[in-house]
Design a protein around this nucleic acid. Structure first.
Lengths: 73, 73
DNA sequence: TTACAATAGGGTAATTTGGGGA
DNA sequence: AGTGTCCAAATTACCCTATTGT
């Protein structure tokens, strides 16, 4: 079965938790969702939740390691 | 084995904060990241974040004190 | 139901980005 | 080679009040 959209057994993160991972303001995470840069799920009350796997994946993709090992001039 | 991208529970610093620690212009920190001298994490919007542990490590490395002379104060 | 922290909105500063040039 | 500065555009942070989550 191909399940592009993960089933329910997926941990959800709050805007505040996602914001902490990226070191941004929770409002910024909301803006990402509105802009379609990140998938979001709305609670019946209108609050947003984010898939942890998607967030972790984005974080990994956007991470760059240093390619030069502490050089000394 | 692979733990290249250290997951969360890692404090991140903004370009301005790193610049303040090194007493350089934020743009200079950006150049370090572009040159691969320091690892970086981009927000979906393109802004950079830096690992505090890596920054502290760099600070410690380039902190060299006089090895001879200047005894006393 | 009450109390309180977090979030959703909208507006307005502050920061960051990228390029070019000193 | 490495930094600091100027610029315009984009992104993010902080302000507020009302609503939602626990």
């Amino acid at each position: 079965m191909s399940a592009p959209t993960q089933n329910s057994n997926e941990r959800l993160l709050t805007p505040g938790e996602v914001a902490a991972l990226f070191r941004v303001d929770p409002k910024t995470v909301t803006r990402w969702a509105s802009a379609g840069r990140i998938g979001s799920i709305r609670t019946p009350g209108g609050h947003r939740r984010f898939r942890e796997s998607e967030v972790r994946g984005m974080l990994a993709d956007l991470t760059s390691e240093a390619t030069i090992g502490a050089q000394r001039h």
